[in-house]
């Protein structure tokens, strides 16, 4: 048994962390739930002394918004496209990195660089790469002159330039750019985790496989992937959680309008929806949307957990 004096000391040492957690994590969570269930809650009016009745009106309104469905669709689409793609790419790159000896460190650093770079800055670079610059930029009379490096490459190989992100671009083109950008941005962390996992696999398994004359493909599918499965599961789950919070990447490429000039907010996401509600001072609606997002992430993570229980070994 720890005596009382010791217990006091323990609480004292824990108190800075506990106070911070209470104020900045626990209270906001409780407050979010509270605001979500108060009809039409606005904090400015609340400060003025207004009272709000309890109800689920905020949730009903959120779901009835047509923009909410757009946001949900964009978010889910980007998740479904980017998480598997980035995981598979990261796995292949990690295995390749792990199997080479010279320059491994240098390449590791290069692959990790995007992780330490600001995502808005990267977004602007990507926007420039996919850009089309011309006269009357952003109007219907725009004369298309390609200046983005991607279109230059396409033209070099004899293809037609594609309007990726500018005025009049298609939704498919927009999503393609976003997918490439998000996958590229997500790779470093995944490569790092998977490479770490690979390096902790006992080399004897590979020696044993060699003695048994296992082909490289079979080593990959029957040994590497199963032994790496806990790491893969981790990467997929965090990938989905991160994917559902996608927002800054879209702002990075399309700006605050979150879409091409002729169709603003076309690429808005769940988090974007919450920000919009906040900027309109509608805390009740923002809270309700946040809780819905939380619910979706919870369900997806539970499904992930269920699947990995069946698939992940050990």
């Amino acid at each position: 048994m720890v005596d009382n004096k010791q217990q006091w000391k323990a609480w004292l040492y824990l108190s800075p962390a506990i106070v911070l957690l209470l104020v900045f994590t626990l209270w906001p969570i409780i407050n979010t739930v509270r605001m979500a269930f108060l009809e039409n809650y606005k904090s400015l009016e609340a400060a003025g002394g207004a009272t709000f009745s309890f109800g689920i009106g905020n949730f009903v309104k959120v779901i009835q918004y047509k923009r909410f469905l757009t946001c949900l669709k964009n978010t889910v689409l980007l998740c479904v496209l980017t998480v598997p793609l980035s995981t598979i790419l990261a796995l292949l790159i990690a295995v390749a990195l792990n199997s080479i000896k010279p320059l491994q460190r240098v390449l590791q650093t290069i692959f990790f660089l995007p992780y330490v770079t600001n995502s808005i800055a990267i977004g602007m670079v990507f926007a420039a790469m996919f850009n089309i610059v011309g006269a009357f930029y952003g109007t219907e009379q725009e004369i298309i002159v390609t200046a983005g490096i991607i279109n230059n490459v396409i033209q070099f190989f004899g293809g037609e330039p594609i309007n990726w992100i500018n005025y009049g671009s298609t939704y498919a083109a927009n999503i393609t750019v976003m997918t490439i950008y998000i996958v590229w941005n997500a790779l470093p962390f995944k490569i790092l985790v998977l490479l770490g996992g690979l390096q902790s696999i006992n080399k004897q398994y590979y020696d044993a496989a060699k003695v048994d004359g296992t082909s490289r493909k079979r080593i990959f599918t029957r040994i590497t992937v199963p032994l790496l499965s806990p790491m893969i599961a981790y990467v997929v789950i965090t990938g989905f959680i991160g994917g559902f919070k996608e927002y800054t990447s879209i702002v990075g490429i399309f700006g605050e309008k979150m879409g091409p000039a002729d169709d603003a907010y076309r690429l808005n996401t769940m988090v974007g929806f919450i920000y919009d509600a906040l900027s309109q001072n509608n805390q009740g609606r923002a809270s309700a949307a946040a809780l819905i997002l939380f619910g979706i992430i919870l369900v997806v993570t539970m499904i992930n957990g269920y699947v990995s229980k069946k698939r992940v070994h050990f």
């Binding site: 006992n202 004897q204 398994y205 020696d207 044993a208 060699k210 003695v211 048994d212 004359g213 296992t214 029957r222 040994i223 199963p226 032994l227 499965s229 070994h313 050990f314």
Partner: peptide, 29 residues
């Protein structure tokens, strides 16, 4: 190369594949 020598090797730590059953381990070669 190793696989063409026709040897059986038992490693110090056995190096059994942890995700396979005993049967799968023995069948693997």
């Amino acid at each position: 190369s190793t696989e063409n020598r026709g040897i059986g090797l038992v490693f110090q730590n056995y190096a059994l594949y942890p995700h396979m059953t005993v049967k799968q381990n023995i069948l693997f070669p």
